[in-house]
């Protein structure tokens, strides 16, 4: 009765040592995390974590290791951990990036890796910022389809060319890396910010949408597109590779063409 089911032999002959990926190189890093806890102190400070990480690890893995194995109070946002949800935008070595898309091996591991919260938004704890001002601007540009025509019984069709017009700005994941890299937003937080304009662009240039004029009027504000100084920080910061500054310029031109 002991007819053990034998695993069928593999049909592919693998040389020994191949297929396992070999040894993943490991290295030691120092992770410097900006810590802030208003219940303990109004002052923020740096905490160092000495960690042994692997060549396949990302900054998010290092943060996990710090939190799970060293100090459970390290706080940061992350949801999907695969570059889509946009929760873990942070300032890594002075640049806004997603912790889950930044491989440690691509950074200079001989120096400490600095991790700070994104700038320009109120810090709540450690790497967590209050995103409400960011979403407030996002809501103001009405990021939803407005169509006054008859509602079709099936989907609203659109030509491939019409879809291509705003393809770039559909990629936004609302991580706030662009808005919190913008020096104009840093100064007083009044500027609508690149992310709101990118998401307005997504509907302004959508042939199925009828409220483009309303959005252009909103962005013709003193704090709207005209506060953009084409610094290009947003384009550099975008983890989705959206040409943010270009999108803002297109909205500027649309406002101009509508008025003149």
């Amino acid at each position: 009765m002991t007819a053990e089911t034998v695993e069928p032999a593999s049909k592919v002959e693998l040389a020994p040592g191949v297929g396992g990926g070999g040894e993943i190189p490991s290295f030691d890093i120092t992770l410097k995390v900006r810590r802030y806890n208003p219940e303990v102190s109004e002052e923020a400070h740096w905490d160092d974590f000495k960690l042994t990480m692997y060549g396949t690890d990302r900054v998010l893995d290092a943060l996990h290791k710090a939190k799970w194995e060293h100090d459970g109070s390290v706080s940061f946002r992350r949801s999907c951990a695969h570059g889509v949800c946009g929760s873990d935008a942070m300032r890594i070595n002075g640049r806004n990036r997603l912790a889950c898309k930044t491989l440690l091996k691509d950074l200079d591991t001989s120096k400490p890796i600095l991790v700070e919260p994104i700038k320009g938004l109120p810090v709540e704890k450690d790497l967590i910022v209050d995103m409400e001002p960011f979403f407030q601007s996002y809501r103001e540009i009405m990021p939803f389809l407005i169509n006054s025509g008859h509602e079709p019984t099936r989907e609203r069709l659109q030509s491939a060319e019409d879809r291509e017009r705003f393809d770039d700005t559909t990629k936004c994941i609302l991580c706030a890396a662009c808005t919190s890299s913008c020096p104009v937003f840093w100064t007083d937080g009044q500027y609508f910010g690149p992310a709101a304009i990118v998401n307005a662009h997504r509907f302004i240039f959508d042939s199925r949408d009828d409220a483009g004029d309303m959005r252009l009027e909103i962005l013709n504000d003193k704090e709207g597109v005209w506060r953009c100084r084409t610094v290009f920080n947003c384009t550099e910061a975008c983890p989705r590779g959206i040409q943010v500054t270009k999108a803002i310029s297109e909205v500027k031109n649309a406002v101009l063409n509508r008025k003149i």
Binding site: G189, K222, W226, K252, V255, K259
Partner: peptide, 26 residues
């Protein structure tokens, strides 16, 4: 969340209609 609480620093002081900033840019 989304209860409309925004730190006072970020609330926009009314909206400015008019095209001054656009004309200045042009």
């Amino acid at each position: 969340p989304r209860s409309g609480r925004v730190a006072p620093k970020y609330t926009r002081h009314g909206s400015s209609r008019g095209n001054f900033e656009m004309l200045a840019w042009l």
